[in-house]
Write a protein that binds this DNA or RNA. Structure first.
Length: 483
RNA sequence: GGGGCUGUGUGCUAACCUGGUAUGCUUCCGCGUUCGGGACGCGGCGGUCUGAGUUCAAAUCUCGGCAGCCCCA
């Protein structure tokens, strides 16, 4: 495709989703896209990984209905206010209008917590740690963008209920750990967790913590967020238990929402290059592609046969591999699979077939990096190279991320740094609601958003003045342009 | 939320200003030759987003709808 994602990110983005066939934008409902097999295969692997980690951390799967009666939806005041403008409503069925309209879930608190109310009787029923992998719908009024902001998206939501506040707080930390295990360790996506300002919380939450990563154009993208709900919802939905003193006590809740379709977007934007996708080995739909090189004067049948024997041995070792037997020329196949980010390419022609070897090139290598590997060493070599590729991707992403963190002490400096892209640390007055006007000023002047304070909290600034208000700064705030 | 641009076979595109038989490439199908970095020849299938209006006549002009992109907040 030959487009620089740094210089021309939107062009790169639009080109890769159509050329690598990640999704099809031609579906005729605004904000809804068709996810195509190549994207879905990786997203499924991501779901699997995430579900595994959630279950390892004590969560169990469930499937809740996607429709929520309006009355449930109205129970928690803040939540209603936050979400109602974005709800798709089902108002009729067949020819008859429904007595009560039904919300297509924009998130499942109001579907799940009424059930939690029935399920929780005593301490023995706690904690509840349930997740579901599902899609949700939100009528986004901002411009939609495939993967990043669609009106339908695919995520996991985990909803936990505890007997004590401390356990709930610990859960928030566990959610952050899980984010790190999956996003950073497995997918190579760097991020920072911020505690969002009071004016930018999840509707109904006591506190919101969200992971921000950076896109190639320097804008921040929110990835998983976890919310300390306190007792706001449990009081509203009557999720309570009888304690040892035989008193009624409301549970303490958290919810956690990694959006797989968005994380997938972040994944390919962070690792992709001017030739197309670059995928971590573990998450590539196809990990090794074998390209036969036939031609006059060569024994085509025996080359194909040899390719197949390589494929068998790789598949036997658990590597997702295939022989590309299409009618295209080798050069076409190289480009085709590079565009799709297949980690390892194996070229097999007469030379290889006769010498019981194969020529290997890893996705982020150049022509000169091709290596010949003996048949018997292929499995070990590919596993090793795959692992190294994933590590390289993670390291490069980490470095780039670290280089995009800036600091500013004055309004002017903040403006200059924001122009560079990335996240800028400033001394700031506070994260309370009455400081929102200063954040609004930053937004107005530089289109930058106050993302919050770092979590875990940093040592507060001493003797620093807020760059906006000039008042005594009580915290280090982080500012970025955002998606 | 505000502003701008756009919609023609699968994709890209010409014709649009100045209304009159819709151009070329690509994809796809068939046949043959090719194959170590996006092969080629010949033949074939396939199109003006949608609704209304103006007109003898609309891809073209006008208005609405739907959809996409870009910029600003």
């Amino acid at each position: 495709m030959n487009i620089s994602k740094e210089k021309d990110f939107s062009n790169w983005f639009n080109t890769i989703i159509s050329d690598a066939q990640l999704c099809d934008l031609r579906y005729n409902v605004k904000g809804f896209v068709v996810f195509r097999p190549w994207a879905v295969k990786t997203m499924k692997l991501m779901y699997e990984e995430y579900e595994k980690v959630l279950e390892k951390n004590g969560h169990e799967p469930a499937i809740f209905p996607s429709l929520i009666p309006e009355k449930n939806f109205d129970i928690e005041g803040e939540h209603v206010k936050g979400f109602t403008p974005e709800v798709f409503w089902v108002e009729s069925a067949g020819d008859s209008k429904l007595e009560e309209r039904l919300a297509m879930r924009p998130t499942s608190e109001t579907a799940m917590y009424q059930m939690y109310s029935l399920w929780v009787r005593g301490r023995v029923d706690l904690p509840i740690k349930i997740y579901q992998s599902c899609q949700v719908w939100r009528y986004e009024t901002k411009a939609t963008k495939p993967f990043f902001r669609s009106r339908e998206f695919h995520w996991i939501e985990a909803h936990d209920a505890f007997a004590t506040k401390e356990e709930a707080e610990a859960q928030v930390e566990q959610d952050m750990q899980m984010s790190k295990q999956v996003l950073t360790e497995k997918l190579g996506i760097p991020f920072v967790f911020f505690q969002r300002p009071q004016w930018d919380k999840f509707p109904g939450a006591v506190n919101t913590f969200a992971a921000d990563t950076l896109m190639p154009d320097g804008k921040a993208l929110q990835l998983p967020s976890t919310h300390l709900l306190g007792q706001n919802f449990s009081k509203a939905f009557d999720v309570a238990f009888q304690n040892e003193k035989e008193e009624k006590e409301f549970v303490w809740q958290t919810c956690y929402g990694p959006c797989i379709s968005r994380i997938y977007g972040a994944l390919f934007c962070i690792h992709g290059d001017e030739r197309g996708l670059v995928l971590p080995f573990e998450f590539a739909p196809l990990q090794a592609v074998i390209v036969p090189i036939l031609g006059k004067g060569k024994d085509g049948a025996s080359i194909i046969k040899y390719c197949q024997s390589i494929c068998n041995i790789l598949q036997g070792a658990g590597i997702r591999a295939k022989v590309d037997e299409s009618e295209n020329t080798p050069g076409f196949k190289y480009n085709y699979w590079e565009l799709r980010g297949v980690p390892v390419r194996i070229e097999v022609g007469g030379r290889e077939a006769e010498g019981a070897k194969a020529t290997i090139l890893v996705r982020d290598g150049e022509k000169k990096d091709k290596k010949e590997v003996a048949f018997d060493e292929l499995v070990g070599h590919i596993m090793e190279e795959g692992k190294k590729l994933s590590m390289r991707l993670k390291r490069q992403a980490d470095e780039k991320f670290a280089n995009s963190l800036h600091e500013a002490k004055t309004m002017h400096e903040l403006g200059e740094k924001l122009k560079l892209g990335g996240i800028v640390r400033i001394p700031f007055v506070s994260m309370e609601n009455d400081s929102k006007k200063y954040a609004d000023e930053i937004k107005e002047k530089f289109a930058g958003d106050v993302r919050g304070i770092k979590y875990p909290a940093e040592k507060a600034p001493s003797g620093e003045k807020c760059v906006v208000s000039g008042k005594e700064a009580t915290c280090w705030a982080y500012v970025a342009k955002q998606y």
